[in-house]
Every structure is written in C-alpha cells, then in structure tokens.
Design a protein around this nucleic acid. Sequence first.
DNA 1: TCGACACTTTACCGGATAGGAATACATTCC
DNA 2: GGAATGTATTCCTATCCGGTAAAGTGTCGA
Lengths: 107, 107
Amino acid sequence: MRNNSDDLFRTLADPTRRRILDLLAERGTLTVSELAAEFPDLAYSGVSKHLMGLRAARLVSARRKGRQRFYRLDGRAMAEALAPWLAKYEPYWSAALERLRNLAEEP
Amino acid sequence: MRNNSDDLFRTLADPTRRRILDLLAERGTLTVSELAAEFPDLAYSGVSKHLMGLRAARLVSARRKGRQRFYRLDGRAMAEALAPWLAKYEPYWSAALERLRNLAEEP
DNA sequence: TCGACACTTTACCGGATAGGAATACATTCC
DNA sequence: GGAATGTATTCCTATCCGGTAAAGTGTCGA
C-alpha cells in the first residue's frame, strides 16, 4: 500500500539521487556518462539505477539519441505530490523561503 | 559526512513519521499516547522511536508535563534545510502550489 | 558483420532500519 | 514507600536498500 507521496519521499531520501537532481538543475541536460563522471566513488551501474529510480518517481525524464540517453529534470512529481504536502506545512517554511529570496536579490 | 539535508530527507522518507507530522499539523499538540492511538498496527514503542527521530531532525519539539510529553511541530528543520532546497527547484513546483492556493479559496 | 560503446538489468552482498517485546526510567497517586 | 501510569531504551529479527560485478540490450562505426 504505497502511494505517490511515499515513492517521492523515498526517492528524495538518497543523497546521491538529490545530487543528481542538483546537477540536472544546474546544467540542464546530461547523459548517464556525464552524470557518472560526477560520482567517481560509484560504479556506473549504480548511477544508472539511481536514474531509473528518479525516472520511476517522475523526477527526471530521458530522451534517447543514438546510444546515449539525455536526462533532464521533470517536475511532475514535485508538482503533483510534493506541492500539496508543502502546502500543509507552508507556515513552517514560507517565511524562511521569503528571506532567501530577498537575500538573493541583494548585492 | 552526513549533513542537515540528509537527515531531514531521511526522516521524511518514512510514511509513519510523515503521518505523525500531519496529525500534529491538524491537532496542534499531542501526547505520545494520543499519537500511538492513531497507529493501531504499531507498538507503542515504535511510535515513541519515530518521535525521537523526528525530534533529532528538529521537525517536532516536546514539552514535558508530569509524566506525559506533549509533542508539537517545530519548523526549524524545514525552514533551514528544506526551504533552501525548495528554492532551487521552485520553478518546478511553485506553479502547482499556486493553483492549489487558488483552488482552496473557491467555494 | 564484428567490435566498441552507452546504457540497463540481474544476481548477489552487507549494512541500515523499522518493528515488536521486554525492560528501564520517571512521575504521580495511594 | 509502593503500585500504577506514561514514556524511553535495549535487544533482537526480518526486511529493505544501496552498492558492485557481470551479463544483457541496443546502436554506431570501420
């Protein structure tokens, strides 16, 4: 009896997977090799499996081109499962987020 | 080499812990017994342990009164670790969140 | 067509973790 | 002081999960 939210939070629980999301957020689109290069301590297949997990959670999507596969962020899961959850707790983090925004706008 | 974010997301990964947060969000302050009553399938000690985890992650705080312990939400971790993370991915969920807000304001 | 390449899948292992039961601890009530 | 109550902790076990190595799939190039 596992729902969307469970899968999403489970997927986000792993630091490597969050790091992959960060890399994709910074650089847009990356191949498995490019991503794997960022994790020298991990076997290639490990990175690939993490990407499968992220794909299953709909946090990333993949486009195939030749023998490469280009991954990029896909916010569907965040929008559909995380956003409603966040809404419940908004009072607890929105103020902090606002401060961050203001900070970012200053020199 | 484990940071705040790791602990926070790891703690949020468990459905029972998230359910506890939900209950506290709805009802404000609850004792361990009251919370345990909401989880008939779990042993009392299990709930208590989850509360310890949530406390370690600073997602809840406890006030002691007599032999009872009153737990309530504590947004520090969300504000300090979750909000910055959210800020990075804001484009992916803010639109969805906005829609939710508008929906909530209608009859 | 053969081999190299990019990636995925499978099989397996070790460590982490959720869970229960029993025990320990702290506080109140008698 | 002693029993009862509310909670925390310890010990144990089954399960899950991330990790690797190796085999499998599909594509390109010579």
